[in-house]
Design a protein around this nucleic acid. Structure first.
Lengths: 221, 221
DNA sequence: ATAAAATATATTGTATACAATCAGGGAGTA
DNA sequence: TACTCCCTGATTGTATACAATATATTTTAT
């Protein structure tokens, strides 16, 4: 028998807003109007506001007193800082995963990699990103550390605010897949140190690609 | 002219509760009664509830639907996971700090270390812990990465739920100070790799000390 | 006397009402 | 025209009211 999932509106609303941000309905800098949203979702402002409090702690939105809630628009510096932490954390995941990875788990990882290759051949950015996300998530999960997972997921969602700009430069696409190939080799050899280092540089390269696209943007910094 | 700090009650209330947890007025497992707290603080339940939402995302409390908010009481597994992440993050701080530490900054660190030594001589656990906290915080700040800082501070507060048990075993007290001595040497030499490794093991040792005290406890796991 | 059922009380969750603050527009002046 | 001031409407922040659920107490039956 399944656990009865008791639903609270503020949790549902938070999920809803998070999803809007994830898929791009809400973009960085957008203002979130409480009344508007409450009518759209058919609930009162109370659960809306409670959800906004939650999201502000997650860092997805910023609440300016008496002005309202705005979708976060991290500055260049914030992006760099987030990636710096991400590279360390995902590097750690890679190391831990390489240390304890079973053969079945490697096969699963390999199949994800093959999906990546396919989308790369087809120059299908959208699906590449999607599978890439599943690939990284899978490695995280192999660590079995939920605290680690939660932190990484939280940061990733914030970085996702910039997904539109991400990876749409062909050069970065090429580099990304070759980094992934090297990474798979390291996992195949169960080499924790190499896996960690490759993952770290993979992340830092992604950061640089994002930042370079973004540097000449106006309202950030 | 100073920035006008506009205060919102929910933020104030969250600070208040956080402080209660930090100093021990609220302990792990305690229930937080909304009405009671609202009367004690002289505000309505609205800002109280908004604050609770925030704290639940921080992980300091757990909200059980229709039952109420309870101060988190992490299981043994959670503690281990938090320390695992902490060791990586604080290790990273140590590495980054060692890489960029100025002479003046080292002097400051050294003076903090000397305070530690003093309290160690006097077997003054309370003040040792206090200075130890400032020491670690200082290293964090040297990195200049606010994202990193926020994450570490968040986890530390949760670990602090167990401060009562921490370091009150004489053996651990001795080990802690000698680990700190080695650490200071590494910083003096500006050796990032060693600083990182020493910090990591320092944290993992602290974890083991805490867990061992705690293993025979009842309601955890 | 114990255990289950029923009722009452307390607490949480949600909606609404009211207060404080902000954003925008027009009137008036230089 | 450009600028300031004041006013109005809109939006956020807080308090209260009501509804739903959980906990405690009493009642009832065995």
């Amino acid at each position: 028998m399944a656990t009865i999932e008791r639903k609270l509106l503020n949790v549902e609303v938070a999920n809803e807003i998070r999803e809007m941000i994830r898929v791009g309905t809400l973009e960085k800098g957008d203002k979130i109007n409480e009344k508007e949203l409450s009518m759209a979702l058919g609930v009162s402002r109370t659960p809306i506001r409670e959800a906004l409090q939650r999201l502000s702690i997650e860092g997805l939105i910023k609440i300016i007193p008496h002005r309202g809630a705005f979708v976060s628009s991290p500055r260049l510096r914030d992006i760099r800082e987030m990636f710096e932490v991400m590279s360390v954390l995902e590097g750690t995941c890679a190391r831990m995963a390489a240390e304890k990875m079973s053969e079945a788990e490697f096969k699963k990882l390999e199949s994800l990699h093959l999906e990546l290759e396919k989308h790369y051949q087809n120059r299908d950015h959208e699906n590449y990103l999607q599978v890439n996300h599943r690939y990284h998530t899978y490695i995280q999960e192999l660590t079995g550390n939920r605290v680690l997972n939660d932190i990484i997921n939280g940061i990733r969602l914030k970085i996702l605010l910039y997904r539109s700009q991400q990876l749409y430069q062909p050069r970065r696409f090429d580099d990304s897949i070759s980094e992934h190939r090297a990474l798979l080799e390291a996992f195949k050899k169960r080499d924790p140190v190499q896996a960690e280092n490759l993952m770290k540089t993979h992340l830092m390269n992604q950061c640089e690609a994002l930042v370079s696209l973004y540097a000449d943007d106006d309202d950030n910094e």
